[in-house]
Design a binder for these strands. Structure first.
Length: 408
DNA sequence: TCTGGGGTCCTAGGACCC
DNA sequence: TCTGGGGTCCTAGGACCC
């Protein structure tokens, strides 16, 4: 059956939210940046984009291009809050809303067309309500599948509404560079170019066997993408696969070498990972330590633990063990800790007083931190870091309460 | 003031087992 | 006096997305 899919992409989301919450920023070149020392441009307002300011740009480069650029540290709580409101609004038009990121969503409105007349009508209603309630614009793509809906939403920004009709797909794709498709990044684009494939039209006609030989299972999907075929369903939060890993990483404000100093950051990261794992109600059996050296070379080492773990101290000790198995070649600029092989955590009554005491202490600390924000309460060894880790933001973060987390 | 952070999926090689 | 072979787990790295 023919589906009708919407992709909704908030325009310059973080920057637009800041301009809404602070009128002094409206109409001006604004860039949202991370709240730490070493950071990049996360989002630029359209006024800033006119100067060539882009996501991922370094600050000194951005200031060269636009000396009047206003830099605003990211306010993750605010963006998450606004995002949640927008998602709920979309859910008035179909339960099939897939939260793709904090500022993007797919809607399968196939079953809602009778009620709301047309996909364009739904898009119009959503756009005008988001504008009225939040003062924000978005670009909407309408198409028979997610791949094409996402492509369509990219076609007009800001405040766009673009439909790719089923009988127009071949024409749209014929001369479209393959890199425009979601899922074909720089590397794949380069590899395809070496095979003489530059446009989606060429990709669609290219022999699948050759694609398979060069790209493995991805080759099959590439062939379909070239023809605009994508059968993947829109997954509501309840249908989304469960989280598979939980991790945190941070670029340090300066490169460090001493084990003691590194260990202190690992404790902080392990605490963040542990608390999130506990909030999700999961334990994990593999701990991965990631390091980035001063020269930006990055590597990771992982270790399977004898049992499932969830306490911050356990995660910390595992990370520390890995660290101690390494000979550091350079000062470290980034540290990351990740917990994987996750399972729903079984809560059994602890056998021993000591363990029972520790469990209730952990739960109490988690409770305070949930309510008052990261690191309201923390082990004394972290005290000098207070506040430093509390405003990490990431576009990939799911809005509060939107992420499917099945608590056992 | 040199380059963020959180994820998913795939690959490839080695260990180990039957 | 080798050159089986499949399955699973583990590890490291890379591509991609926002």
């Amino acid at each position: 059956m023919e589906r009708t899919i919407l992709h909704i992409d908030m325009n310059a989301f973080f920057a637009a939210v800041e301009q809404q919450s602070n009128p002094a920023l409206r109409g001006r070149p604004v860039a949202v940046i991370g709240s730490r020392q070493r950071t990049i441009i996360l989002t630029a307002s359209y006024e800033a984009r006119a100067y060539g300011i882009k996501t991922g740009m370094m600050l000194h480069e951005a200031r060269q291009k636009c000396p009047d650029l206003i830099l605003v540290p990211a306010n993750n709580r605010l963006y998450t809050h606004v995002s949640s409101g927008i998602i709920r609004l979309m859910q008035d038009y179909t339960p099939q809303v897939e939260v793709f990121s904090i500022d993007e969503a797919f809607l399968d409105v196939t079953g809602s067309l009778n009620v709301f007349t047309s996909a364009e009508r739904i898009a119009y209603l959503i756009k005008s309500r988001i504008k009225a309630r939040f003062g924000l614009t978005c670009s909407v793509g309408i198409a028979p599948n997610k791949l094409l809906a996402k492509l369509a939403s990219e076609m007009k920004k800001p405040d766009g509404l673009t439909r790719i009709a089923a009988d127009d797909v071949a024409r749209v794709l014929e001369n479209l560079p393959v890199g425009e498709l979601c899922g074909i990044g720089r590397r794949t684009q380069e590899k395809l170019a070496r095979l003489g494939v530059h446009t989606c039209g060429e990709l669609g006609r290219f022999p699948v066997a050759v694609l398979r030989a060069h790209f493995g299972v991805v080759g099959e999907r590439l062939a379909l993408m070239g023809r605009g075929i994508d059968g993947s369903p829109v997954l509501s939060p309840e249908q989304e696969p469960e989280v598979k890993t939980v991790g945190h990483g941070m670029t340090l404000e300066r490169d460090i070498s001493s084990r003691e100093e590194i260990a202190r950051f690992l404790l902080q990261l392990a605490e963040m990972v542990g608390r999130r794992a506990r909030r999700y109600g999961v334990s994990g059996q593999t701990v991965t330590l990631t390091l980035r050296y001063a020269d930006f070379s990055t590597f990771s080492r992982q270790r399977v633990q004898p049992q499932q773990i969830w306490r911050s101290e356990e995660i910390y000790h595992a990370a520390l063990q890995i660290l101690d198995s390494l000979l550091l070649a350079q000062p470290v600029r980034l540290l990351g800790v990740r917990l994987s092989q996750l399972q729903p955590r079984e809560r059994q009554i602890p056998l021993f007083d000591e363990e029972r005491r520790r469990e209730s202490l952990t739960a109490a600390l988690d409770g305070v931190n949930e309510r008052y924000g990261e690191f309201s309460v923390m082990p004394a060894s972290l005290l000098p870091l207070k506040g430093k880790g509390s405003h990490v933001i990431s576009p990939a973060w799911r809005p509060e309460g939107i992420r499917n987390v099945k608590v056992s």
